[in-house]
Amino acid sequence: MKKSRAFLKWAGGKYTLIDKITQYLPKGDTLIEPFVGAGSVFLNTHYDRYILADINRDLISLFTIIKSTPQKFINDAKLLFTPQNNQEQAFYQFRELFNQSHDNYERALLFLYLNRHCYNGLCRYNSQGDFNVPFGRYQKIYFPEKEILFFAEKAQKAKFICGSYQTVMKKAVKGTVIYCDPPYEPLSTSSNFTAYYANGFNNQEQQNLALLAEKIAAKYQVPILISNHDTTNTREWYKKAIIHTVETRRSISCDGQGRKKIDELLALYQ
């Protein structure tokens, strides 16, 4: 079956692992994703309803706008995707405009522009909440029109929420399935991307997520699947779950040698 790509680039995106994730995702009426990211799992599954959440307000605002006015958004966003705007000076001007803007629609347009033009499609903010990823220096920029249209069509089944994983997971009732894709336990200190948004996701949060998953699965008979790196820590955190090991390639690395195969795990609470 042909897989659908997300319209955003995303660190830790699940496009390459979709087949393995869907193999272990239980059936149900509604899928809840507390860490939706670019939405690859949402785009490649077939539930009746979706509750899709993230703590990144810009991301959820963008998704909500595309759900309601996809064609207007595409027409306006296209105006930013020109050869003149794929230059360092223009990029930093738009980045500054984004950081100063308080208009949700303008920020949504600029968020897409920054995502496709910045280094490796990273989404990172400084302690003041300013987007601070540098210019990506791509020769050619792809405008993801068909991917946006597909997302907008599928989004008619979805409710988007800006909120914490604790808040969103507590919305689960029988018939719901939860898929959690938290910021991963780093394999080394140099690969720590957990501060991709203003509030990082440390080991205490990782443990809290595992305990909450265990509790909700037991109390409400709601199956929960969590993905993460396969490490000593994650094996300990998810010791009450059924563990499946999957192999993937590192998606972000500064040196070419870093793009090697690594083990991830899928922890299923049911």
Rank of each mutant, 00 (worst) to 15 (best):
Q23T: 14
F91N: 00
N192A: 08
P186T: 08
K20W: 04
T245K: 14
Y142I: 12
A53D: 05
V133M: 06
L122P: 07
A90D: 06
Q166R: 14
L114R: 01
K171M: 15
A218P: 01
L265N: 03
L62I: 07
R124I: 11
I65Y: 06
T16K: 13
Q89F: 09
P26Q: 07
L109M: 06
L187H: 10
C162Y: 04
F135V: 11
V133G: 04
L225S: 03
V177F: 01
N115L: 07
F35K: 00
I65S: 05
I32K: 00
Q71V: 13
Y184W: 14
K170G: 02
L43A: 07
A152K: 03
T248M: 10
Q204N: 14
D130E: 14
E214C: 03
L114G: 01
F7N: 00
L109W: 02
V133Q: 05
R95T: 02
N104A: 13
T64E: 14
K14G: 03
Q89E: 15
D58H: 15
K170D: 12
F151R: 01
Q89L: 11
D103M: 06
Y138Q: 13
F193L: 11
K140G: 00
Q204V: 15
I226T: 05
F7H: 02
Q139H: 13
N228R: 06
K219R: 13
K146P: 01
A267L: 12
G121P: 14
Y24P: 00
L59T: 09
Q156Y: 02
V173M: 07
D29P: 00
E185I: 15
I178R: 00
Y125C: 10
N115R: 05
K170V: 01
Y179R: 02
T69F: 13
L80N: 05
I18R: 01
G12H: 10
Y179H: 04
N228Q: 07
Q207D: 12
F35N: 00
P183H: 08
N228E: 10
K9P: 07
D255Y: 12
I216F: 03
Y113K: 01
D54M: 06
G175Y: 11
Q207C: 06
E145S: 10
G12R: 09
K3Q: 14
G258K: 06
A38S: 15
Q206Y: 08
S164A: 12
V222Q: 00
D263L: 12
G12W: 10
D19T: 14
K20G: 02
F193W: 13
V173C: 09
D130I: 01
E145C: 10
S190I: 09
L114T: 02
Y105A: 06
F94N: 04
I178Y: 00
K78H: 09
E236P: 00
P144M: 05
N120I: 03
E145F: 07
S191Q: 08
P134Y: 07
E247C: 11
Q128D: 12
A38M: 06
T194C: 11
T167E: 15
A158W: 04
D76C: 05
G175H: 09
P34R: 02
K146E: 15
V36A: 10
